[in-house]
């Protein structure tokens, strides 16, 4: 899974004077309002944060409401799937034309038939829609499968990912990992040699 990053940020959080009773709660509330939204400054969607207040001093904003700015250090978990990065998500719906995936439980991703590689054929198995690989019979994509897909584009406003299954390293996560394990097993000596070198 790519597209996730952890960043440290120094933030100045402005708090309404009425909230001065419980500053930490007020800071968390302010930051929570940014959750699950794309922020250009952070360059990503804020998924989680952890704050520590560094100094006891606060800057009072001149104006009608004397908001006060508290300096905090925050570590932020951000999500920004750049094009060509690989993300993983759960398949929620399959139709002959599209595969619908939900990434990290909140971002909708879709792979349309144009972006599904030839290898995968749409089939109806036991009343279930699925895509089956014609070269590897065990490589099956159906509802509930964890899918690894390549990001084509990311719509920041609605957190929508247009994905692709064209590269060979995309598909069912379980199957792909099994494959790479087997490959690892076979190439172990080779791998060892490379490591020493």
């Amino acid at each position: 899974m790519e597209g996730l990053k952890l960043t440290n940020a120094e933030l100045l959080v402005y708090i309404h004077p009425s909230k001065s009773g419980n500053k930490l709660k007020a800071i968390c509330r302010e930051l929570s309002s940014l959750l699950f939204q794309y922020d250009e400054i952070f360059d990503g969607v804020l998924l989680a944060f952890d704050v520590t207040v560094k100094s006891k001093g606060a800057k009072i904003l001149a104006g009608l409401n004397p908001y006060f700015g508290v300096k905090v250090e925050a570590s932020l978990l951000l999500f920004n799937p750049k094009p060509n990065s690989l993300v993983e998500g759960k398949i929620v719906k399959i139709s002959p034309e599209t595969i619908h995936v939900i990434v990290l439980g909140f971002s909708a991703a879709v792979v349309t038939d144009i972006d599904i590689r030839e290898e995968f054929k749409y089939r109806m198995r036991n009343g279930e829609d699925c895509f089956v690989s014609s070269s590897h019979k065990r490589h099956v994509l159906k509802v509930g499968t964890m899918l690894r897909l390549q990001v084509e584009s990311f719509d920041e406003e609605v957190m929508h990912i247009a994905g692709s299954l064209l590269p060979a390293n995309t598909g069912c996560v379980k199957w792909l990992e099994k494959q790479s394990e087997e490959a690892l097993h076979m190439d172990r000596d080779d791998h060892k040699r490379r490591k020493i070198a």
């Binding site: 719906k93 139709s95 034309e97 599209t98 619908h100 909708a108 879709v110 349309t112 719509d155 406003e157 609605v158 957190m159 929508h160 247009a162």
Partner: peptide
């Protein structure tokens, strides 16, 4: 439904 789910542009 297909339009809404396929591209964020049509969702609204």
């Amino acid at each position: 439904i297909s339009l809404a789910a396929t591209s964020g542009k049509y969702l609204d």
